[in-house]
């Protein structure tokens, strides 16, 4: 389906896909809240949520009920429109980002030729939402968190794009399905093997782009209370939370598609491989969150400008030379 000649059936498919993506986001948030708290517990040698439901499985459901029932408190002198627009703006662009992802050989909502451009372009909206949330909530912690979010997001977007661009050079296509098709079934024919540096850079930048520890400066509790979402309670906070986990899932899917062979697997190709790989990446993100301490802000920017950016340019240059003179 091309974007130019969109038909009624195409529209129906899009609507169904959007509904499925919303369902995926909500289920993913519930599963990840549980998995994250269990993971944190196990790493700290305690059981995590345990009392609500069998092994605490109902804990995220109860938590979301609590968030739904909470009073929405609006501080004085907020920019009323932006204050409520920001959580929605954080949540909805993520919907679009899931559409070009090839979950399975035939399971792609929007088969666009330049899928990765679409994803990278609209991923910036999350950043804008963080900025607006911090700016609108009339709170110095919020403004500081928003400033940090923007400088961090803008900085880390560059090595991320360059790392992905190396794979695009190698494949010769920006279509996500073609990038998956160019990789083989077995782990040694995936892009992670011929682009290990790009994979490493992408792994670092995806943690930073999703504002997760150790790069969770925009919401560093010890300095900024909760950063840009300090003043949000109830569903406003829940939407930011939902968006954070959805963004995590998205970058994990992109990681699986670009470097880990997407829906291709040793036994039977299908969407289950995409999901297994994406959730392994998610568990890795959870693992590093509970291992590393938060970096300082100057360290954060030094890592990016002094190491990741030159390395990604070097990697891109080598890839270009190899592709041009030696062939794929």
């Amino acid at each position: 389906m091309e974007l130019s000649n969109i038909s009624i059936s195409g529209l129906i498919i899009l609507v169904i896909a959007c509904l499925l993506v919303i369902a995926l986001m909500v289920v993913n948030a519930i599963v990840m809240v549980y998995a994250e708290r269990k993971g944190a517990g196990f790493i700290q040698r305690r059981p995590g949520p345990y009392e609500v439901g069998p092994w605490g499985t109902l804990q995220p459901v109860v938590d979301s009920m609590k968030l739904l029932g909470k009073q929405i408190f609006v501080p004085s002198n907020v920019d009323f429109f932006l204050f409520f627009a920001a959580p929605v703006l954080a949540f909805f662009p993520v919907l679009l980002l899931f559409l070009p992802i090839p979950f399975g050989p035939f399971l792609t909502a929007l088969k666009v030729p330049d899928g990765i451009v679409l994803i990278l372009a609209f991923a910036g909206f999350g950043l804008l939402a963080n900025l607006l949330a911090g700016y609108a909530s009339n709170n110095k912690y919020g403004v500081l968190g928003a400033g940090r979010a923007v400088s961090q997001g803008v900085a880390y977007e560059i090595p991320m794009i360059l790392a992905l661009l190396a794979v695009v050079f190698q494949t010769g296509s920006m279509n996500l399905s073609e990038i998956v098709e160019a990789q083989g079934r077995w782990p040694w024919s995936w892009n992670i093997l011929c682009q290990p540096l790009a994979f490493f850079i992408y792994l670092v930048t995806l943690v930073a782009e999703t504002n997760r520890a150790p790069f969770d400066l925009p919401e560093g509790e010890s300095e900024l209370t909760a950063g840009f979402h300090t003043e949000y309670s109830g569903m406003g906070f829940a939407l930011f939370f939902l968006a954070e986990y959805a963004n995590m899932l998205l970058v994990s899917f992109v990681c699986a598609t670009f470097f880990l062979g997407g829906y291709k697997g040793p036994v039977l190709d299908g969407f289950w491989w995409t999901f297994i790989k994406a959730y392994l990446v998610m568990m890795f993100i959870v693992w590093i969150r509970w291992t590393f301490p938060r970096v300082r802000f100057d360290q954060l920017l030094n890592i990016n400008w002094k190491w990741l950016l030159p390395l990604s340019i070097l990697n891109l240059w080598i890839t270009a030379v190899v592709v041009n003179f030696i062939g794929k």
């Binding site: 790493i43 059981p47 693992w287 590393f292």
Partner: peptide, 17 residues
């Protein structure tokens, strides 16, 4: 550090219910 936390993940828990 990741090896340490990874080992802790599978180690027996200390919590007494």
């Amino acid at each position: 550090g990741m090896i340490v936390t990874g080992r802790y993940f599978f180690a027996p828990q200390k919590t007494v219910h």
